[in-house]
Design a binder for these strands. Structure first.
Length: 867
RNA sequence: GGCCUCGUGGCGGAACUGGUAGACGCAGUCGACUCAAAAUCGACCGGGCUUGCCCAUCUCGGUUCGACUCCGAGCGAGGCCACCA
């Protein structure tokens, strides 16, 4: 063994061993319990960033830990390889997205390998490979057959100059990011997946996911958004019936049927048929509807927009009083929720109140806080209370009134209770090139025809370079022109591609059988799934995780798999933050300075007093902590970290700096501290190897010092087992091993028992750290005299005998305050403990000769005397 | 606006089920080694004073023998959703 720790050589040796021995090639083995550990696969953007390193280190530690615990562990890796950034890079470099993507994959794969992650590369997949996306197409066709996929029109952001559809993030202040043109809303045909058909199940099943963080479940529940309410029909008054040429009714949905008698107007969305009909004969109204159409599709803008409206001049009849109510078109009514229309109750709804105030519509109070109470002076009361001015329904609680009014409406055929969901169907069409082609053909004679299964995959041409003006597939004749599968005539291929969330909705299933050419999935899915531990960023809490839960259920209903929930346990790791520094530029804008180019001065207590630029010595302002980003110039390239300190130090820092769910603060000093620890560990093993135990002596002859070290070693082992295995607090596990190493370094006895105790403590330290820093442990394990590689060692069990103690330290409190510590026999009864406690001078002093009024005893731990 | 999470030394954090507040690490101070520095090793490291006690976990209340932990109110920070009728 070398005297000095050289990470590069150590890491190469370990990685070569794992590769030669094919340690991470996984096969199904029914004789062992399986463990499927999965990290969210990355987008191949070019280089790994710190967030990746953190994410994949967490997964790798759990993988290696569970492997040592005897599980057959699968940890696959793949590439979320379709998507917009490849098109943007293509425009910037003139390279086809395919080439750019594949080069990135090759580079990132090398980076993964240099970090020593235990991935089974046999199962690698990239979503841009036809062997993967053909099954997207196949599954889409099955959904189409069952009506789970369907066509409808959808509204998109349209850039009129580039003649292209923009993603929401490409719309900046209402203008196209490239052209600066005002973005329009356009209605185009799109394909949707009927996720709403699964709303109830997706919501209910959240309760049966104890392995998911509470806040992710809450976020999904809010997103699905179940509301119980009443659907109410307001029959057309003669003017509306005349315009529309038929009798009928305006339907609304409300959760507050108890406020029905407070309706003073009706409001419909600008896209509502009634609005269109009224606009046809009213140019001013038509202009207002057009304005709404042009407005931003960004929901955040809508929320802050002023409430505006325009009267239709039409009326409907109140279903219970028959009174005529005017109908307005209002910009705050969403076509996609409920009926695209609402009943306006200004007295009991904030938004209706604001609208009514603007257009001087009456406010009619029908609910008061308590029986006999006056309405609030503001005229607004939005909570539940007691009904008034509501004819036969006055004097009821809001809940009672809702039930009674719903029943009355139902009896007249004018309404019924109903559940309304916030969740909408998932539009999967993207008017983009770099994605999975939707397998449809448009025939002038037969209409839209599905591509027959035997013609799958519809292969995406890989040689196109987008230029920002529309989808290049529309100009690719070889792709575009085809035969109609039904009539054989000339036809045109669909050029829309699928949302990349489709790719990620089932890739975790495909890993179980990535080599299967004849089907999307096979029986191996039933061996590996569900994913036992899924790890990724909180930003996927809603969309990716909800779509995956939906897609898994669809595949279940297609009888392809037998599970409903894909991910049993979910860990959402926190973001990696770094300090932000800036200087004021000449034009008054902030110029961000790299943290590495900044030097901080501190006072005697270590507080930061001033920061200056290392480049020119000028003062620098501190901008707090933020996620690593190009724009803030505070990113740190993981590659430079691995190059300077090695993969083990990088991994150890990531795991030690904070618990996995919390944000992690980058610190160069902290990294050096972790390297220091690894050097100390190396040196401890090296020094120990130079004075090996010559003889073995039985435990009975060990010194107290040796037994104490042995106890601590086994306590550490027990703690690390719980911290990694159950609590997932890798930081405290590492801290415990650090304490153990501190004790080893302090112990100096040269007797055989003491040497043995140190040997055992070092073995336990190395085994306990093996999942976290596998390379150094590979070498140290050999240095401790083992033939078998540590990767194949089982996780050790703590020896209960080592944990046993004859006497334990007991805390003595007087009135709940610590007043002394005494050693008592382990498991001592209360009288014994009390007698020993009363012998303590400090305790006696605080008792001041009074007998304790009450004694609280926690066996072997604590004694509280109350006087 | 709604929902959620979190407030502990100079900093990251620990205290797992209500039981010794500040483990472990970073930064800092002092010392050893060195011609010197780096590295390494050792000691100290929340505040106060009367040196064995008092005060300290955002603030104010409450429950309890005992509260960082539970409950109520407030303040502050962050996240998600956002005109969802």
């Amino acid at each position: 063994m070398q005297e000095h720790y050289e990470p590069a050589a150590v890491e190469r040796a370990a990685q070569d061993y794992w590769t030669e021995q094919r340690c991470f090639n996984t096969v199904e083995d029914p004789s062992r319990p399986k463990y499927y550990c999965l990290c969210m696969y990355p987008y191949p953007s070019g280089r790994l960033h710190m967030g990746h390193v953190r994410n994949y280190t967490i997964g790798d530690v759990l993988t290696r830990f569970m492997r040592m615990r005897g599980y057959n562990v699968l940890q696959p890796m793949g590439w979320d390889a379709f998507g917009l950034p490849a098109e943007n890079a293509a425009m910037a470099n003139g390279l086809p997205p395919a080439q750019w993507t594949r080069e990135n994959i090759a580079h990132m794969k090398r980076q993964f390998q240099s970090l020593g992650f235990a991935f089974d590369w046999q199962r690698e997949l990239a979503t841009c490979d036809p062997s993967y996306y053909r099954w997207n197409q196949w599954l889409f066709l099955r959904m189409l057959e069952r009506g789970i996929a369907y066509q409808n029109t959808g509204i998109v952001n349209w850039d009129p100059i580039d003649q292209t559809v923009l993603a929401n993030e490409q719309v900046i202040d209402g203008r196209g990011w490239r052209t600066g043109a005002l973005v329009e809303k356009r209605e185009i045909p799109m394909y949707y997946l009927r996720i709403t058909a699964y709303a109830e199940e997706l919501l209910q099943a959240l309760q049966a996911l104890p392995g998911w963080p509470e806040r992710v479940r809450v976020m999904q529940a809010n997103w699905i958004g179940r509301s119980e309410g009443v659907e109410i029909a307001f029959p057309y008054a003669p003017d509306a019936a005349a315009l529309l040429g038929a009798a009928g009714a305006l339907k609304v949905f409300t959760t507050r049927a108890d406020t029905l008698f407070g309706v003073t107007f009706m409001a419909v969305s600008a896209e509502h048929p009634l609005a269109a009909a009224a606009a046809a004969r009213d140019p001013a109204l038509a202009e207002f509807v057009e304005q709404c159409r042009r407005g931003s599709t960004m929901e955040a803008d809508l929320a802050t927009a002023e409430k505006r409206g325009h009267s239709t001049g039409l009326h409907v009849c109140h279903p219970l009083t028959g009174q005529q109510v005017p109908v307005w078109v209002a910009n705050y009514v969403l076509m996609a929720y409920g009926e695209g229309a609402l009943m306006g109750v200004p007295a009991h709804d904030e938004r209706d109140f604001e609208f009514a105030a603007r257009y001087q519509l009456p406010v009619q109070t029908v609910v008061v806080p308590d029986a006999g109470a006056a309405p609030p002076a503001s005229g607004q009361f939005t909570e539940y209370g007691v009904t008034v001015n509501s004819a036969a329904y006055s004097g009821l609680s809001s809940t009672q009134a809702i039930t009674a009014i719903a029943a009355a409406l139902k009896a007249q055929g004018l309404g019924q209770p109903r559940v309304q969901w916030r969740l909408r169907d998932w539009g999967i069409s993207r008017q983009r090139y770099w994605g999975c082609p939707i397998p449809l053909i448009h025939c002038p004679g037969c209409g839209t025809v599905p591509v027959p299964d035997e013609q799958l995959p519809v292969v995406l041409p890989e040689n196109l370079v987008p230029d920002g003006t529309g989808n290049p597939l529309n100009r690719a004749k070889d792709f575009l022109q085809c035969e109609c599968p039904r009539c054989g005539g000339a036809a045109r291929r669909e050029t829309d591609t699928m949302d990349t969330f489709v790719d990620s909705s089932w890739y975790f299933l495909r890993f179980a059988c990535a080599d299967q050419q004849a089907a999307a999935v096979d029986e191996r899915v039933n061996y590996w799934l569900p994913v036992d531990q899924y790890i990724g960023g909180i930003e996927h809490a809603i969309l990716h995780l909800l779509y995956s839960r939906f897609w898994t259920r669809v595949m279940r209903d297609l009888k392809l798999i037998s599970l409903s929930e894909p991910f049993s346990n979910l860990l959402t790791q926190g973001m990696v933050l770094n300090h932000i520094y800036f200087q004021q530029g000449n034009d008054g804008r902030r110029v961000y300075v790299k943290p590495a180019d900044v030097s901080s001065k501190t006072d005697a207590q270590g507080r930061r007093t001033a920061t200056v630029s290392l480049l020119d010595g000028t003062p620098v302002s501190y901008g707090g902590l933020g996620t690593m980003s190009k724009s803030k110039n505070n990113g740190v390239d993981p590659q430079s970290l691995v190059d300077s300190y090695g993969a083990d130090t990088a991994r150890l820092f990531m795991m030690f700096a904070s618990p996995p769910e919390q944000t992690l603060e980058w610190s160069e000093d902290g990294v050096q501290g972790q390297q220091r620890f690894l050097r100390r560990l190396w040196k401890a093993v090296y020094d120990h190897g130079r004075a090996p135990a010559r003889a073995t002596v039985p435990l009975a002859k060990w010194s107290d010092e040796a037994l104490r070290l042995r106890r601590q070693a086994h306590q550490t082992l027990a703690k690390v087992t719980v911290d990694i295995g159950r609590r997932r607090t890798f930081n405290t596990a590492i801290a415990a091993v650090m304490e153990l190493l501190n004790s080893v370094s302090r112990s100096s006895g040269e007797h055989a028992g003491e040497l043995q105790a140190r040997h055992e403590a070092l073995e336990i330290a190395v085994l306990a750290l093996a999942p976290i820093v596998p390379h150094i442990c590979h070498t140290l394990w050999q240095a401790l005299g083992h033939e078998r590689a540590i990767i194949d060692e089982p996780w050790p069990e703590p020896d209960p005998a080592a944990l046993q103690q004859d006497t334990v330290e007991m805390v003595v409190q007087v009135n709940g305050k610590l007043r002394g510590k005494v050693r008592v026999p382990a498991g001592a009864e209360e009288p014994v403990a009390l007698e020993l406690a009363l012998a303590e001078p400090a305790v006696r002093r605080f008792l001041a000769d009074q007998p304790p009024r009450k004694v609280v005893y926690v066996r072997g731990k604590l004694l509280n005397l109350v006087v």
